[in-house]
Amino acid sequence: MEISLEHLTKKFGNVYAVKDLNLHIRDGEFIALLGPSGCGKTTTMLMIAGIYKPTKGFIKFDGKVINNLEPRDRNIGMVFQSYALYPHMTVYENITFPLKLKKVPKAEMEKECKNIARLLQIDHLLNRKPGELSGGQQQRVALGRALIKKPKVLLFDEPLSNLDARLRISMRRFIKEIQREFGITSIYVTHDQEEAMTMADRVAVMKDGVLQAFTTADKLHDEPENIFIAHFIGNPPMNLIDAELIEEKGKLYLSISRNIRMRVPEKRRPKVFKKKVKFGIRPYDVEIIERGRIPAKVLFVEFFGKELLVLCKVGDKEIQVLVPAKLDVKEGDNLFIEFKESGFHFFDPDTGVSLCKG
């Protein structure tokens, strides 16, 4: 099922929850709607489901406008954060409930349920009730109930938020494998960038109801279109520093303070020149060295397993550096840092837009 959102808008009173959203989702694609709370991602999903009616714009399934189609007629399966299982019903009864509503013959229901349960590895749990299951097992039951309807579209609303970190990782992989197996067009709503970046074919990043970018995970990370994406995508986030660009004799230099400036390599030269810029550099693109041009003082050191996240003071600016844990770095140390030229990013401080994109 191809899904097109054309100038989709939703207002609550005078407040825009979603504003002029345009997305085209390919048949069988797994996309994520990613953003902080209040960005419009859940509202968008609920409009696709038919629970909310758009204020303006169109929702199309395979080219057909379905704005006025009732939710039950959209052939959609939904998986919720809360699982939404009936506690008094068994796993079997929960999974087959949509078929029971359609008055599907008992023998057919049993066959379909066993097939789905086997695929989801919960066939041994069919006689249990939700209260006897772990969170991961309950989530699989909820997924089974959505899949048994044989929907053309699957909608996931923060489905892993209630699970512990280890289980979230295994369920991410499991959901993606199931989606590939069935080939169902899927939309996954999350505030967790790790979920979106590891699971989705493409990610739609939203902020304040407005689409910021819709592209692959690697492009979001490596070629952020604006300051919001640069800071929101990546853990730890990108350093963003007030700086100036200076052109001398055809060469471009970056100045981050009165005494610190460096040559901008041609490959990272902004396509649009501005004197005052926001300079972006990811923490792993900053190195600690024995001697160099950029003196720094260590303010804080955070242990990250195999790495240390080091917060440094450079002049009046703070810069995060990600270095190997074996490095002997302590709070209060005076040292030098260096920026990897391949990691330079430049943004317009007024509009927030990347200056590196034409």
Results as ranks from 00 to 15, higher is better:
residue 4 S to Y: 09
residue 10 K to R: 10
residue 12 F to P: 08
residue 14 N to H: 12
residue 16 Y to R: 04
residue 19 K to H: 12
residue 20 D to F: 10
residue 20 D to V: 11
residue 24 H to R: 14
residue 26 R to G: 06
residue 27 D to P: 00
residue 27 D to K: 14
residue 28 G to R: 01
residue 35 G to N: 05
residue 36 P to S: 12
residue 46 L to M: 15
residue 56 K to H: 13
residue 59 I to A: 07
residue 64 K to L: 10
residue 70 E to H: 13
residue 75 N to V: 03
residue 80 F to N: 09
residue 84 A to G: 08
residue 86 Y to S: 00
residue 92 Y to F: 15
residue 93 E to K: 15
residue 96 T to D: 07
residue 105 P to W: 00
residue 107 A to D: 12
residue 112 E to S: 13
residue 112 E to Q: 12
residue 113 C to D: 02
residue 115 N to K: 14
residue 115 N to M: 13
residue 117 A to F: 05
residue 119 L to D: 02
residue 122 I to R: 00
residue 123 D to V: 09
residue 124 H to I: 10
residue 126 L to C: 07
residue 128 R to Y: 11
residue 129 K to R: 15
residue 130 P to I: 00
residue 130 P to T: 01
residue 135 G to D: 05
residue 136 G to T: 11
residue 138 Q to E: 05
residue 139 Q to L: 07
residue 142 A to M: 04
residue 148 I to H: 00
residue 148 I to Y: 01
residue 153 V to I: 15
residue 156 F to A: 11
residue 158 E to M: 04
residue 161 S to K: 07
residue 164 D to L: 09
residue 165 A to V: 15
residue 165 A to D: 12
residue 166 R to K: 15
residue 167 L to C: 10
residue 172 R to H: 03
residue 172 R to T: 07
residue 174 F to N: 06
residue 174 F to P: 01
residue 175 I to K: 03
residue 177 E to P: 01
residue 179 Q to C: 01
residue 179 Q to W: 09
residue 185 T to D: 11
residue 185 T to E: 08
residue 188 Y to E: 13
residue 192 D to E: 06
residue 198 T to L: 12
residue 198 T to Q: 09
residue 206 M to I: 02
residue 209 G to V: 00
residue 222 D to C: 02
residue 226 N to W: 13
residue 229 I to C: 12
residue 230 A to C: 06
residue 242 D to A: 13
residue 243 A to G: 10
residue 257 S to K: 04
residue 257 S to Q: 05
residue 258 R to Q: 15
residue 260 I to V: 15
residue 262 M to P: 11
residue 264 V to G: 05
residue 265 P to W: 14
residue 267 K to M: 14
residue 269 R to F: 06
residue 275 K to Q: 14
residue 277 V to C: 07
residue 279 F to N: 04
residue 280 G to A: 01
residue 283 P to S: 05
residue 284 Y to P: 04
residue 285 D to F: 08
residue 285 D to K: 14
residue 295 P to E: 11
residue 303 F to W: 11
residue 306 K to E: 15
residue 307 E to Y: 14
residue 308 L to S: 14
residue 312 C to F: 11
residue 312 C to R: 00
residue 328 D to V: 10
residue 331 E to L: 06
residue 335 L to P: 09
residue 336 F to M: 07
residue 337 I to V: 11
residue 339 F to S: 12
residue 340 K to G: 06
residue 343 G to C: 08
residue 346 F to G: 06
residue 349 P to V: 10
residue 350 D to G: 03
residue 350 D to R: 13
residue 351 T to A: 06
residue 351 T to L: 08
residue 353 V to Y: 03
